[in-house]
Design a protein around this nucleic acid. Structure first.
Length: 464
RNA sequence: GGCCAGGUGGCAGAGUGGUUAUGCUGCGGCCUGCAAAGCCGUCUACGCCGGUUCGAUUCCGACCCUGGCCUCCA
C-alpha cells in the first residue's frame, strides 16, 4: 500500500538511509540554506532548491502541514564587496539578485517555500542567541568580536566526522591571534564605515554567517526541526557550526533530526564554483533552454551523486523531454483530452526511496512508451493519467505539448510557414516531390521540422 | 596528511546475490512518395586481485584510479 510505504531518507548524521518519522505529523519542518544574494546563481546553486522542492512536494503528499523555510542571506561580506565595487547601497545589490533568483527558480519549476526569511530581518533574534551563548559559557567576547568556543561543545564534529584535536594538528588554518581555538568561529564582528551594522551589546557590528541559519530556523520552525538540507560543501563548517550554536543555545536539545546533503554539479568532473571560474549561470542558460529541460537534467542523476553538466547532457535532456511531449501530443490527438489521475506505485516507490529520481524518471519514460503503444481510449487514459500525475508531482510535463514542441516561436512567421506547408502538400498531391522536398528543406533551414501525420502536416522546432 | 563519496554497456545514469533499468547515440526493421515522429529489435556493462557462496557487478579484504571537504562555497 502506497499509504503505508515508508519514506526513506539518507541521513548524513548516521550515514545511512533511515525511515523518516516526523516529530509531529501535523507540522513537519524543513529548513534549507538559501542563496547569498550578491551575484547570479549558477546551475550548481540550483540543485538544492530543485531537490528540496521535490522533497517538499513528496512530504506534502503524506503530511497536511509541511513548513519549509529557505532563507535569503542578505548580509554578507561578499554583498558588501559588490556594493562597494558598484558604489551602491547593499540593499540595491541584495534586492536585485533576490529578484533574479526568484525568477530563475520559477523557471526551474521550483515553488516558493512556505517561508523565506531574510537575515537582516532577524538581527534582534541573532543578538539574543549570541547573548544566550555568552551566558552559558559557549561564547566569548574578544577584540570586538564574539566567538563561539568550539571546545565547549563536546559533540563538535559529529556531523562531518572530525575531531577538534586533529583539526588543531592540521595547521593549514591561519589562526587569528584572538581565537582561543583555531576552530572557533565568529558570531558577531565589528563593522566600520560603509559596511552594514547594527547596535549590539558588543558595539556596532554585524552577524557571522553561520549564526543566521540557526536563528532563522529557531524563530520560524522551532528549536528542533525535522529535516535540514543543503549542499555537501556546507557539511563543514557551516552545518557543523549551526549544530553547535543551536544545541548549545537550546540546552542540549537536538537541532535537526535528519540532515540531507546534495552532491555537486560538476564541469568536466570538477566542482562548479565561482572560485574555479567554471560556472554556468542559470540566468544565461535560460536564454537558450527551457527551464523544464534544466530541471529534467538536474533530476536525471540521484541527488547525492555528482552531476556532470555538459552541452551533450543538455541536448539529451532536451530530446528526451521533446519525445515525451511528442508522445503526449500524439496520443492526445487520438485519445484525448487527458487529465492527471494518480502516479503509479512504482513511480512513488522510487521517490520514497531517498528521492531516487533517475529511477522515477525511468518509470515515467516507461509510462510514456505505454501511452505511445495504447490501442484504445481506455488504455490511453490510464497511461496518460499516470504520466501526467507523475509529472505534476515531479514538476514536469505540465505544459501544452503543442506549444512546447513549437518552442520559442519568436521571429517566426506563422502565416508563411502555413503557406509553405500548404504549397508543399499540393505539390505532394501532384506528385511533384522535388518541389515538396525543396520546401521542406527551406523550412528546415528556418529551424522547422515537418511531420506528416494521418490528418495532415504539422511542424515543430528542430532539435539542435 | 585526516575524513567522505564514487569507479556500470559508445555516452549519461539507476539497480540487483542467480531473471529487461531508463534515456541519448549508432545499426537493422515497421510506417512513409522520401523524410520526420512514433514503435519494434539490436550493440562481448558492471576498475583490478583475492575471499565467502552452488552462484557476485551486487557481500568481505587488499590494491589502483577519480572527485569532494578540511578556507568563502549549493
Amino acid at each position: 500500500m502506497t499509504e503505508t510505504e515508508p519514506l526513506l531518507l539518507y541521513n548524513t548524521l548516521k550515514r545511512e538511509k533511515q525511515v523518516f518519522v516526523p516529530q509531529d505529523p501535523d507540522r513537519v519542518t524543513l529548513y534549507v540554506c538559501g542563496p547569498t544574494v550578491y551575484s547570479f546563481a549558477h546551475i550548481g546553486n540550483a540543485r538544492p532548491p530543485v531537490i528540496f522542492d521535490l522533497l517538499y512536494r513528496v512530504l506534502s503528499t503524506r503530511y497536511p502541514n509541511v513548513v519549509y523555510a529557505r532563507n535569503i542571506t542578505d548580509v554578507d561580506d561578499k554583498i558588501n564587496a559588490a556594493a562597494a565595487e558598484q558604489n551602491v547601497p547593499i540593499e540595491v545589490i541584495s534586492k536585485h539578485y533576490t529578484d533574479i533568483y526568484h525568477k530563475d527558480m520559477a523557471a526551474l519549476g521550483v515553488g516558493a517555500p512556505s517561508i523565506e526569511p531574510r537575515a537582516t530581518d532577524h538581527i534582534p533574534q541573532m543578538i539574543q542567541m549570541i547573548q544566550r551563548l555568552l551566558d552559558s559559557g559557549h561564547a566569548y567576547e574578544t577584540d570586538g568580536h564574539v566567538l563561539f568556543a568550539v571546545e565547549s561543545f563536546a559533540d563538535y564534529g559529529s556531523l562531518s566526522g572530525r575531531n577538534i584535536t586533529e583539526m588543531m594538528a592540521g595547521a593549514r588554518i591561519e589562526v587569528s591571534d584572538f581565537k582561543r581555538h583555531p576552530g572557533d568561529f565568529v558570531l558577531w564582528k565589528p563593522s566600520v564605515a560603509p559596511q552594514p551594522g547594527w547596535e549590539s551589546p558588543w558595539g556596532w557590528g554585524r552577524p557571522g554567517w553561520h549564526l543566521e541559519c540557526s536563528v532563522m530556523s529557531e524563530f520560524h520552525l522551532g528549536e528542533t526541526i525535522d529535516i535540514h538540507g543543503g549542499g555537501q560543501d556546507l557539511v563543514f563548517p557551516h552545518h557543523e557550526n549551526e549544530i553547535a550554536q543551536s544545541v548549545c543555545a537550546h540546552a542540549g536539545k537536538t537541532f535537526a533530526r535528519y540532515w540531507m546533503h546534495n552532491g555537486f554539479v560538476t564541469m568536466n568532473k570538477s566542482k562548479m564554483s565561482k572560485s574555479l571560474g567554471n560556472t554556468l549561470v542559470i540566468h544565461e542558460l535560460l536564454k537558450d533552454n527551457p527551464g523544464e529541460v534544466l530541471r529534467y537534467l538536474l533530476l536525471s542523476a540521484h541527488y547525492r551523486q555528482p552531476l556532470d553538466w555538459s552541452e551533450e547532457a543538455l541536448v539529451r535532456a532536451q530530446r528526451t523531454t521533446d519525445r515525451i511531449y511528442g508522445v503526449i501530443r500524439d496520443a492526445s490527438t487520438k485519445f484525448g483530452p487527458f487529465e492527471a489521475k494518480t502516479a503509479s506505485e512504482k513511480f512513488m516507490s522510487s521517490l520514497l526511496d531517498d528521492l531516487n529520481t533517475p529511477d522515477a524518471l525511468a518509470e515515467l519514460n516507461n509510462e510514456a512508451r505505454r501511452l505511445a503503444n495504447a490501442e484504445d481510449v481506455e488504455a490511453a487514459q490510464i497511461s496518460a493519467g499516470k504520466l501526467l500525475a507523475a509529472g505534476a508531482l515531479i514538476g514536469l510535463f505540465q505544459q501544452d505539448p503543442e506549444s512546447w514542441l513549437a518552442g520559442d516561436t519568436e521571429g517566426l512567421d506563422d502565416a508563411l510557414i502555413d503557406q509553405l506547408i500548404e504549397e508543399r502538400n499540393s505539390s505532394r498531391k501532384e506528385k511533384n516531390f522535388a518541389r515538396a522536398d525543396e520546401i521542406r528543406l527551406q523550412l528546415q533551414e528556418m529551424g522547422i521540422t515537418l511531420e506528416d501525420v494521418a490528418d495532415g502536416t504539422r511542424w515543430r522546432r528542430s532539435n539542435d
